[in-house]
Design a protein around this nucleic acid. Structure first.
Lengths: 317, 317
DNA sequence: ACATGGCATATAAATATCATATGGATAATG
DNA sequence: CATTATCCATATGATATTTATATGCCATGT
């Protein structure tokens, strides 16, 4: 097999039409270049040049090779660049998983947009799954990073980064006695114990245990055990069931932006234990450079967002 | 610069996921293969594999390279094949020139068709020029082979192959006294001296001196000097001028197939000196393999045609 | 005729590649 | 828990390939 050097040498001679000048340009002497050209011709068993007293002239076969040789060299240069970009995390693919509630948080679309601008050669693959599947996916390396709402255990080679902590709000059917009257503002925050006798609709525990347990625990702290009317497979489904009048639920702040027919929202008296975290989980080691870039950017953006918010709340810090 | 060998080695390891087995498959020992992989990684300044106790696993950068490496190797194989085909004359381009009268000879379309079937990767470029330009073109290597009607001098590095020798016929205006009456067959061949007083229309001498001189010479042999009424720039134009009643002309047999309004044809008493040769001229040396193939096929086909004709005329030879 | 430009050949040195032998690390097994 | 097996990395000497120097040969142009 002939190699790249042969092609480089060949191209130089083809373009100069002169071994001596080509050798000069390649930084070697004329005899070895003549030899290498001859070796290439023997390897291909084809005459590539006609030797003329004034220099070398391509044969038809040589001209045919010239075209391909250029392409191949170009292709190699491109391959090299691609490899290097990939290694720097500037090219590749990152599989981002998230639970059903995560994409309503404005952080995600913003991050995706920013990442796409900063790393245009990295494609993002988005996958929605339950928390359990997400963690499995991280382990199995089918997912590179996952937005989850529960505090996934850091053990087992996963690391978890806090992105945001949101307060929860209450979602009630429109016609519920505790629902705010439309048009009237400034309803005071509800206390959790006001909901002691209400049927609760919760996100199915086995899909995402974090939320479920969080709410149960908060209710217990508030002095009651909630009555579970129904479990829903996705966080949004709980709101649909609320709309149907089957009960009430608690949901993180960011879900408030979607205005569902028949659902009324009320804030909740703050309970430091009852918050909806948004976390980004990834493998502690073994991630691709592109995935690393993604997580880095997510953390930086989360810090920036948090700083901006604190600054906004406390302007003369 | 890394070369093809590196890529071959890399691909083998990438596909086996195991240096030892890859080495075996490549027909070398494990240590040098390990070394070459390492060398490639250093050259690219990128880690291509993760070393695991069970073997080697591609990194993202490695995966990126794997794709390109396959393409590049495939491209090299294709380039090699193309060069070899070109050298064998099975790929390329042949520039075929011809004078204006040549394409009416059935030999040309037949040859073009046969050649296209036999050498599908060779493209033919057809160019019509005067004989002078054709010869210049052959010299300047802008034309590879040329069909001419005159016996081009073999000297000056050109070789000429006889393709066909056609008798000439007389073209007369429809209303000429010598013109055959339509509907009546079997007009005897005219003798050249019958045309002694007719105005002649001839193919312009400087465009293609062969024909011109041939006719003048034949007339001289027949005992008269023809009266040149007009010269035409192309052989077909002479027939058009005949149609316009400006005179008579002589043309090779194959032109008889085009039936022009106002032109009548009569055969001519055979004169061994007054024939229209169809010749194929090419450079004696220095032709591409594809051009060589073309000329070879033309000569073979000419021989076959001649044999068939002789056989047809003299069936019990 | 002679000088010039340019490729080919010969030989020796430098470099790259390979095989053999061996070390070290991790996972599977008794 | 020690042992074995597997597999990659390193060291070193051998071999092959590539390069440089010196020189020859041929055609061209003056």
């Amino acid at each position: 097999m002939f190699d790249i050097r042969h092609l480089r040498y060949f191209l130089a001679v083809a373009e100069e039409g002169n071994v001596t000048r080509a050798a000069e340009q390649l930084g070697l002497q004329q005899p070895p270049l003549s030899q290498q050209i001859k070796a290439l011709e023997q390897e291909l068993d084809v005459q590539l040049f006609r030797r003329k007293p004034r220099g070398m002239e391509l044969t038809d076969a040589g001209r045919a090779l010239q075209v391909d040789a250029k392409h191949i060299l170009g292709h190699m240069a491109k391959a090299r660049a691609k490899v290097e970009r990939t290694a720097r995390g500037e090219q590749g693919n990152v599989v981002v998983g998230f639970t059903s509630s995560a994409p309503f948080h404005p952080f995600l679309p913003r991050l995706f947009r920013l990442f796409g601008e900063r790393f245009p050669h990295v494609s993002l693959t988005l996958e929605e799954h339950g928390t359990t599947e997400l963690v499995e996916g991280l382990r199995a390396e089918t997912i590179d990073a996952a937005f989850v709402r529960s505090p996934v255990a850091e053990s087992h080679g996963l690391s978890v980064h806090a992105i945001s902590i949101e307060p929860m709000f209450v979602a009630l059917p429109n016609n519920h006695p505790l629902a705010p009257v439309p048009g009237v503002d400034n309803f005071p925050p509800l206390a959790l114990e006001d909901l002691a006798d209400e049927p609760f609709i919760l996100y199915r525990r086995h899909t995402g245990p974090g939320f479920y347990d969080l709410i149960i625990a908060a209710c217990n702290r508030a002095g009651f055990t909630p009555k579970i009317a129904q479990e829903a497979p996705r966080l949004i489904s709980t709101l649909n069931l609320v709309a149907a009048g089957l009960g009430v639920t608690l949901a993180p702040e960011s879900l408030r932006s979607l205005q569902l027919e028949g659902v009324a929202y009320r804030s909740l008296k703050s309970d430091p234990g009852l918050t909806a975290p948004l976390n980004l989980a990834c493998r502690a080691v073994d991630h691709s450079a592109a995935a690393r870039r993604f997580v880095e950017m997510a953390r930086a953006e989360a810090r920036a967002t948090k700083a901006a918010k604190e600054d906004g709340g406390n302007n003369n810090a």
